[in-house]
Design a protein around this nucleic acid. Structure first.
Length: 490
RNA sequence: GCGACGGUCGUCCAGUUUGGUCUAGGACAUCAGAUUGCCAAUCUGGUAACCCGGGUUCAAAUCCCGGCCGUCGCACCA
C-alpha cells in the first residue's frame, strides 16, 4: 500500500501537521506554509535526529546565523550575478521564456551566463526570434532574481534574505575555525530558514518560498580527500547510485574502487546520509544518489549528487550534495579582503579549504517521511496508521483510562503527570477506547497506556503497540524506563 | 509567468444548468450528555461554510468583471 499525496495532505490538514499560511486572508501568497502542533513536534524531533546522527556522530560544530545578510555576501557568493534568469515575455500572448535557453535551442548559439540584457535582446533580434506559441513579438529581456531583498534602517540599505543557509557558515568560517580550535576536515552545521522567490511554488511543503534547511559544510584539504580514518565505519554501507535511469547498488568501498564516487571523503558523507535517512523511517530502498550532469549542477558545484526519494509524485530531491571546491571561501576572501587560509596540522601547510556540502531540505524530508510511513491497515477496517519511528512521533504515548469511573481517570491523570516532563504524552478520556486508539495511531503515536480495573488493584497498566495492536501488562513504575528504551536512549 | 479546469462547515461532497422556502443539506470528523466498558458501537443534542472585491437585479452560493488560492500541463527550480 503506497500512500499518495492527497492522503498525506488530508491527514496534515485534519490533524494539525501543516496548513497554508495566512489562510484567513484572501491575499495570502502561495508558497508559505505553517507547521501545526503535530508538525512542529515532528520537525523538532527530525532535527534532533539529524544532530545525533550527523552533527554529533561526526563531531561537527553547529552555528545559528542571521537570515538577513548584507549585499556583499551575495556579491561574493555569486548570487547577485548568477541567481538570476534572463526572461523574455511575448507582447502578444504573455507567455514567458528563458531567453538564454530559447536562443540556444533555436540557433545553437551559445549564450553566456553573464551576458547583459541588451546583448541578449540584440541576439534575439539578429535571429528574428518570435513567440513559438503565437508568433508574437518578444518584449524587453528582464532578469529575475530569486532573492528577496529587504531595506535595512531608515535609509533602506540594500540587504537580502539568505537563499541558502550555508553562506553564514562561509562568512563565519575563520572565526569558528580559530575559536573552536578546528582541524581539517571540519564539518560546520546549521539549521534555519532560507528564502527564495520561486516563480511557481507548488505542492505544499515541496516547493516553498520560505523553507527550512539543515546544512553541513565540510571544510577539507583538497590534497587529502582520501585520508579518512572514519571511512571504515561505513565501508559496507549500501549506496544506490544512479545516472537518472538505472540504479546500481554498491557498498561504499566498492563505489570508490569502481570510480563511481570520486574519493573517500565524499563517499563517507554520502554513506552517513543514507544511514541517517534509514533511521528516519524513509525506505532507503526507494532512494538514490543521482549524479548530476554538467548542465544540471548549481553554478558553484564541481561534483554533485542529489539524494532523491521515490514518492507518489515521482522522485523527490531531499539533499543536494555538492563539492563546492574553494568557490565560496575564495569569493568571500576576495570580496572581504580577509584571509581564509588555515594551517592544516597534518601537513603543516597553509591551505584554502575546499568544501563538500550536504544541503538538506527539512520540509521535503518531513513530507517524504509522512508518505513513506503512511499505512492503511486492510486487516482492521482500513485503520490509518502512521508508522513513525518512536523518536520522530509527535506524541510518544497516549494515556487512557478505560472509563471515567471508579477513579480510573484520576489514576490515568496521575500517570500522565509523572511522564509528561520526560516524554510527549497525551491524556484522552473522551469516547470509546477503540476510537481513542485510532486517533492516536493516525498521528503516529507508537504506544498507548490504558488504565483499567486491574490497575487499581496492582498498579499495572496495559501498553499497546500501534503497529501490531498487541498489548502487554507492565508495572507503572517500569513505564519511564520502558519508554526511554523505546526511544533508543540509554 | 502562460494556458485549461476548479474554490461551499475541520475533511469530502450535494445545491449553480434554469437567480426566488438556501433561514445553505448530507457523510465523516469534532464537542456535550446518556449508555457501554479493550479496538472508529448506539442514542440525543450542539458547534461549524458559500475565497475576496466590485457589478447586474426587487432578489446572487448561483449570472458578469477583477483579484487571490489550488490542481494539471508548459516554463522555472540555487
Amino acid at each position: 500500500m503506497v500512500a499518495n499525496y492527497d492522503e498525506v495532505m488530508k491527514l496534515a490538514l485534519e490533524r494539525g501537521f501543516y496548513f497554508p499560511s495566512c489562510e484567513i486572508y484572501s491575499d495570502a501568497p502561495a508558497g508559505f506554509w505553517e507547521y501545526g502542533p503535530r508538525g512542529v513536534n515532528m520537525k523538532n524531533k527530525f532535527i534532533e535526529l539529524w544532530r545525533r546522527e550527523l552533527v554529533r556522530r561526526d563531531g561537527m560544530l553547529e552555528i545559528d546565523g542571521c537570515q538577513i545578510m548584507s549585499k556583499s555576501v551575495f556579491v561574493a557568493s555569486g548570487h547577485i550575478g548568477n541567481f538570476t534568469d534572463p526572461v523574455v515575455k511575448c507582447t502578444k500572448c504573455g507567455s514567458s521564456f528563458r531567453a538564454d535557453r530559447y536562443i540556444t535551442e533555436k540557433t545553437g548559439e551559445n549564450v553566456l551566463e553573464r551576458m547583459a540584457e541588451q546583448e541578449i535582446k540584440a541576439l534575439m533580434k539578429k535571429h528574428n526570434l518570435r513567440c513559438p506559441n503565437c508568433n508574437g513579438e518578444f518584449g524587453e529581456v528582464s532578469k529575475f532574481n530569486m532573492m528577496f531583498s529587504v531595506g535595512i534602517g531608515p535609509a533602506a540599505e540594500e540587504a537580502y534574505l539568505r537563499p541558502e543557509t550555508c553562506q553564514t557558515i562561509f562568512v563565519d568560517f575563520a572565526r569558528v575555525f580559530k575559536t573552536m580550535r578546528g582541524r581539517l576536515p571540519l564539518g560546520i552545521a546549521q539549521v534555519g530558514k532560507s528564502f527564495r522567490n520561486e516563480i511557481a511554488p507548488r505542492q505544499s511543503l515541496l516547493r516553498l518560498r520560505e523553507f527550512y534547511q539543515a546544512e553541513i559544510e565540510v571544510f577539507c584539504n583538497p590534497d587529502r580527500l582520501n585520508e579518512m580514518p572514519e571511512f571504515k565505519e561505513v565501508k559496507n554501507t549500501i549506496l544506490r547510485l544512479s545516472d537518472g535511469s538505472s540504479i546500481i547498488e554498491v557498498t561504499a568501498e566498492e563505489a570508490i574502487s569502481k570510480g563511481l564516487t570520486p574519493n573517500k571523503l565524499i563517499t563517507y558523507y554520502l554513506a552517513l546520509l543514507v544511514e541517517f535517512y534509514d533511521k528516519t523511517g524513509i525506505d532507503v530502498k526507494r532512494s538514490r544518489f543521482r549524479n548530476l550532469s554538467v548542465d544540471e549542477k548549481a553554478f558553484y558545484a564541481s561534483v554533485a549528487f542529489d539524494f532523491e526519494v521515490e514518492t507518489s509524485i515521482g522522485w523527490l530531491e531531499l539533499v543536494a550534495c555538492n563539492y563546492r571546491s574553494d568557490y565560496d571561501l575564495k569569493g568571500h576572501a576576495i570580496t572581504s579582503k580577509q584571509n581564509f587560509e588555515v594551517l592544516d596540522s597534518a601537513t603543516q601547510s597553509k591551505v584554502l579549504p575546499h568544501v563538500f556540502e550536504l544541503s538538506m531540505g527539512i520540509d521535503r524530508s518531513i513530507y517524504a517521511i509522512l508518505e513513506h510511513c503512511y499505512y492503511e491497515d486492510k486487516q482492521h477496517d482500513d485503520r490509518v496508521v502512521l508508522r513513525l519511528k518512536p523518536y520522530l512521533a509527535p506524541i510518544l504515548v497516549g494515556i487512557l483510562p478505560l472509563m471515567t469511573k471508579d477513579g480510573l481517570d484520576q489514576k490515568a491523570r496521575q500517570i500522565n503527570s509523572e511522564l509528561k516532563y520526560d516524554f510527549e504524552t497525551f491524556y484522552d478520556e473522551s469516547g470509546s477506547i477503540g476510537r481513542r486508539y485510532r486517533r492516536l495511531e493516525e498521528i503516529g503515536t507508537p504506544f498507548a497506556v490504558t488504565v483499567d480495573k486491574t490497575t487499581m488493584q496492582d498498579d499495572t497498566v496495559t501498553i499497546r503497540y500501534r503497529d501490531t495492536m498487541q498489548q502487554e501488562r507492565i508495572n507503572i513504575s517500569d513505564l519511564n524506563q520502558y519508554l526511554h528504551k523505546a526511544l533508543g536512549r540509554r
